[in-house]
Design a protein around this nucleic acid. Structure first.
Lengths: 224, 224
DNA sequence: CAGAATTTTCATAAAGTTTAGATATAATGA
DNA sequence: TCATTATATCTAAACTTTATGAAAATTCTG
């Protein structure tokens, strides 16, 4: 099957690479544009993108303008990237038909989840809303984790971490990798912090805690 | 099953997109016309629309004229869009057989609710007028909320918010999402305002307030 | 237009989460 | 076995998010 193509528009190389990386890992084909004009040009010449990710804040032509321009000709899904500090003009976005906002800094996990959700809505690609493995059931919609029919209360990070484990069942994950996926990309703290989270997670999910194996000198693996 | 088709007539692209978006999300198929002539043309050539949404204020041929024209040949449900400042000629509307008015700016929730209500009346599509969950009974028609047979007085927003929660029972809702559905599209204030409404709602519905759960770092969820 | 009700904002308190650091424990290899 | 290295655990501090109350702004009503 052909890969779904996504166009990433941002003036900062780093951010483009970052997005490119994350999306490529999730199985998408990614093109980059470094400014509005280039984006529009690429959009109209290629025109088989399934989705566009657009930074609001760009020199010359900002994200809104690009969005407006594209919206004149297409209903392609658009995700806007906004910095936390930026005024987030929802009204404008709505009028322009923005499908989703993502606030920087974001975690790869969230980014990919949003993209998948939108593409699913528009009939392309699919992603399960309910994960399940080894008697652990994760309902992303209700934001609930159940073990043998009993609800387990998890914090936000714990929930993200557990779902990351379950999504990668049977795969050994380095702390590095976990950090790079579950934490926001601007986190530069200690990788040891994962140990603490794993510990809490293990204790909260009781005997199922054993499913999160320690791989000595390497990281962790969730395995049934 | 085939989707129900709606024709949206407005001279402003943005407003068309906005309506298109909201209605598409609610599962309708939407066509757009940017002026009266085009609308009439589309109506007569396609002629399988279930409903027409018509902006009153349009250059050249205004909404009333379009309405009159269409009414000569069809009893198709018509919703008129009026700006708040505009004179809303109820009498004229009555004579022309306008089914409903929606004042701009509106909330997605209201828009969809009105459309559904009309289509239901004319036998297409269905939507419950009475919601009920966990001992909370919401009568949308009477605009009344009852808890254990006792009527609870809620303000407009509180009512809308509660019904949105109940309609989405068991689903975790971000503030973002709530704002985008319950508030008018021109609201771009603080998402924290939801906290205040939730607080009031909780206190007004007494012990049932516990059914509105806080999901830390995420939003709220109504759950029985 | 005045008064009432509602909605929104703001400041602060309260609650909950995440992280760093210290120490204990366990695994590994010579 | 011992030295070394990595992980587990615990605690408290730092940080975020949410709850709350009250004031300000807005909208509704008569």
């Amino acid at each position: 099957m052909e890969k779904v193509k996504i166009l990433v528009v941002d003036d900062e190389v780093r951010m483009r690479k970052l997005l490119h990386d994350f999306l490529a890992k999730a199985g998408y084909e990614v093109d980059e544009a470094e400014n509005g004009n280039q984006a529009i040009e690429m959009f109209f010449s290629t025109n088989n993108y399934a989705l566009i990710i657009l930074d609001v804040m760009m020199p010359q032509m900002d994200g809104w303008s690009v969005c407006r321009e594209i919206r004149n000709f297409s209903r392609i899904p658009i995700i806007m990237l906004t910095a936390k500090s930026e005024e987030r003009d929802e009204l404008l976005g709505f009028k322009l038909g923005v499908d989703e906002y993502i606030t920087k800094p974001f975690s790869p996990k969230i980014l990919v989840a949003r993209v998948q959700a939108i593409l699913k809505r528009s009939g392309k690609g699919a992603e399960e809303d309910i994960l399940s493995a080894g008697g652990i059931l994760i309902d992303k919609i209700a934001h609930i984790v159940k073990i043998d029919e009993r609800i387990v209360e998890l914090s936000y990070k714990e929930f993200e971490l557990l779902s990351y484990f379950v999504e990668n069942e049977g795969i050994a994950l380095s702390r590095e990798k976990i950090l790079n996926n579950v934490w926001n990309y601007d986190y530069f703290g200690d990788a040891r912090t994962i140990d603490t989270h794993v510990k809490k997670l293990r204790s909260k999910i009781g005997e199922k805690g054993d499913l999160i194996r320690t791989i000595w000198g390497m990281g962790y693996k969730f395995e049934v």
